[in-house]
């Protein structure tokens, strides 16, 4: 089989979804990435119900938003500024979100969520507080430098959300990984801008994870699903070309852990 037509089964009727598909990547979140020989791409929330290889025919059935949302939740952090960084002396406030694809869902983060700030290799616990219905981290005034902050929600499925915040300007140096069980780390921290190629690494307990799928999304996406899917190379690295304004969110799931990394952009 070289390529196949993909059909959607809708109440017993088959509708052609995409012709001459030569690449299908199912994701753990219940979505399926499709690409055809013409270079067209789609991501749908569906499951494969039949593959007739001789007849080049694949039949799928859509799964509901609710089913997918139930399947995977993420937590992530976002700064309470759209300026891209905080200035020295300014109150550093971060918001904690729970949902999927950068869209907060109905589930609130658990109250026993833990938060930590890491700076210059020193880790300290941070206090979470409710503010106008949002869960926030108010770090107060911070000195010039890079702050590595993460939150952790324990449960059957463990969730991590990591962010790197810049206080002041010009902190173009590498970051040490936090050493989490599953972690996305920027390969080389510097100001990321739209139009840049941006590289991340995926680590598990500090060791590189090769061949794992990383999803990427951005604040203004109209997509209900993650618009980008990357795969790490042998060194656990993956690249994305930043084509949208605003912050990006990277997400990776392995076993019973989902870990996100928020890339803060000033534009």
């Amino acid at each position: 089989m070289c390529e196949s037509n993909v059909y959607l089964n809708k109440a017993g009727q088959e509708e052609l979804l995409m012709e001459k598909v030569d690449r299908i990547i199912p994701a753990e979140d219940g979505s399926i990435f499709l690409e055809n020989v013409f270079g067209e791409r789609r991501v749908i929330k569906a499951r494969i119900i039949e593959m007739e290889l001789v007849r080049h025919r694949i039949v799928m059935e859509e799964t509901s938003d609710a089913a997918v949302a139930q399947k995977r939740q993420e937590i992530w952090l976002e700064p309470a500024t759209d300026h891209g960084h905080f200035h020295a002396g300014e109150e550093v406030i971060l918001r904690v979100h729970k949902g999927y694809n950068m869209k907060p869902g109905d589930h609130k983060p658990k109250t026993d969520l833990q938060a930590f700030g890491v700076s210059e290799g020193m880790s300290r616990p941070l206090t979470l507080q409710e503010h106008h219905g949002n869960l926030e981290l108010n770090l107060g005034q911070e000195a010039d430098g890079l702050l590595h902050i993460y939150v952790r929600e324990d449960g059957d499925h463990q969730l991590y959300g990591v962010i790197v915040m810049e206080i002041g300007h010009h902190h173009h140096h590498g970051l040490k990984p936090l050493g989490l069980p599953l972690e996305i780390v920027p390969a080389d921290y510097s100001h990321a801008r739209m139009g840049d190629s941006y590289e991340i690494r995926v680590l598990a307990d500090g060791k590189t994870l090769a061949g794992i799928r990383v999803s990427a999304t951005y604040a203004g996406t109209h997509n209900r699903e993650y618009p980008h899917h990357l795969k790490t190379d042998e060194e656990g690295r993956a690249k994305i070309f930043l084509t949208a304004r605003g912050n990006y969110l990277f997400s990776v799931t392995k076993d019973n852990i989902t870990s996100t990394f928020t890339l803060v952009k000033s534009f």
Partner: peptide, 21 residues
């Protein structure tokens, strides 16, 4: 429609990378 808006957004990304690279 929501699907068309998402499609346009994806196309913007594809064309962005192609034209800028």
């Amino acid at each position: 429609t929501a699907d068309e808006a998402a499609e346009k957004e994806n196309l913007t990304g594809i064309l962005f990378e192609r034209l800028m690279s």
